[in-house]
């Protein structure tokens, strides 16, 4: 059995949890999901949509905020009662902080930053980068079960998670936590002030470049963004001119984004912009200059006047 430890913060599920779940399903066999926190039943219900044996929920007031000691205590306690072969964590900052602690507490093997899983006979082989990604190593655990594994973000597709025919059963589990033994006292989470807009989390982005010509025309792009439920972003010249705030700038001197859909309006495609959005799953470029470098990276290139194209597109989406 594989146990996936999902990650939530303040009742919001971290998307990387789905990727770890996809990895678990791909490995085959029974999969169970664990979510720990305080008042995380909603998160459990969200997870129960997946094709898994069950979702185990641990609710405890001491787990309201993440602490390495608290979460380690909760997970090790769960693992004394459920005995999976493999425990999968998403390779997040949180998991990096406490998954090794769990492994050490249980005296088990930890394999971190896994990018693929293979089978060699009846053995499970984990693939992880070494030497700063220069080489990939095949790793097999030779210790006792469970083996603690963290899964690198982006290595598995969240969209690949199989949904169940009906919601998986949710099981509440009580754990004993000695609150006095929690040595960390969490502060309110630090928010980087300069990026009030976090474009990195956006699933869809409509981005404008100098081809928009005037600040007043930004409204055209905004309407398209609204119709698509997308975030509005821009290339450097737009933010330099003050037409949009700096925190909406994409590129090497702004944010690096990788949404599912990136629509570039009147963006020529300077390298400093391209490096900030090349990771997008689908790139649509609208530009009236057919030689614009943006078309080198675009999946769909439209050589058209954006002032005709964009309102038409907005109208079509709305209808």
């Amino acid at each position: 059995m594989i146990l996936v430890v999902a990650e939530q913060r303040g009742g919001t599920l971290n998307r990387a949890s789905w990727e770890a779940l996809a990895c678990a399903q791909q490995m085959g066999g029974e999969v169970s999901v664990l979510v720990v926190g305080a008042g995380v039943d909603a998160v459990a219900r969200e997870l129960s949509a997946a094709d898994v044996r069950d979702v185990v929920v641990v609710n405890h007031t001491a787990l309201a905020d993440y602490t390495a000691d608290g979460y380690t205590a909760a997970v090790t306690d769960v693992l004394s009662r459920i005995t999976p072969d493999v425990v999968l964590f998403p390779h997040t900052y949180q998991a990096r902080d406490f998954a090794p602690k769990v492994a050490a507490r249980l005296n088990r093997v930890a394999i971190t930053d896994v990018v693929a899983v293979k089978r060699d006979g009846d053995r499970v082989v984990f693939v992880r980068p070494v030497f700063q990604g220069k080489l990939l190593a095949d790793v097999v655990s030779e210790g006792d079960a469970p083996c603690i594994v963290t899964v690198q973000a982006g290595a598995f597709q969240a969209a690949a998670v199989r949904r169940g025919a009906s919601a998986a059963p949710i099981r509440q589990l009580d754990v004993q936590i000695d609150e006095a033994a929690i040595r960390q006292k969490p502060e309110p989470p630090f928010q980087e002030s300069r990026q009030a807009v976090d474009l990195t989390q956006a699933e869809r982005i409509v981005s404008v470049g100098r081809g928009i010509k005037e600040q007043a025309n930004i409204a055209i792009a905004q309407q398209l963004a609204d119709a698509m439920h997308a975030e509005l972003a821009a290339s450097r010249p737009i933010c330099d001119a003050g037409w949009l705030p700096m925190d909406r700038q994409v590129g090497s001197s702004g944010q690096t984004v990788a949404p599912k859909l990136y629509v570039a309006l009147g963006i020529s495609g300077a390298i400093q912009h391209l490096v900030g959005m090349k990771g997008s799953q689908t790139i649509v470029a609208i530009n009236n200059d057919r030689d614009a470098p943006i078309f080198e990276v675009a999946d769909y290139g439209i050589v058209e006047d954006l002032f005709e194209m964009v309102p038409a597109l907005t109208a079509a989406l709305k209808s």
Partner: peptide
């Protein structure tokens, strides 16, 4: 780097 990767400079 530019000759190898920058679509604009590749022109």
């Amino acid at each position: 780097c530019a000759g190898a990767f920058d679509a604009d400079y590749q022109k």
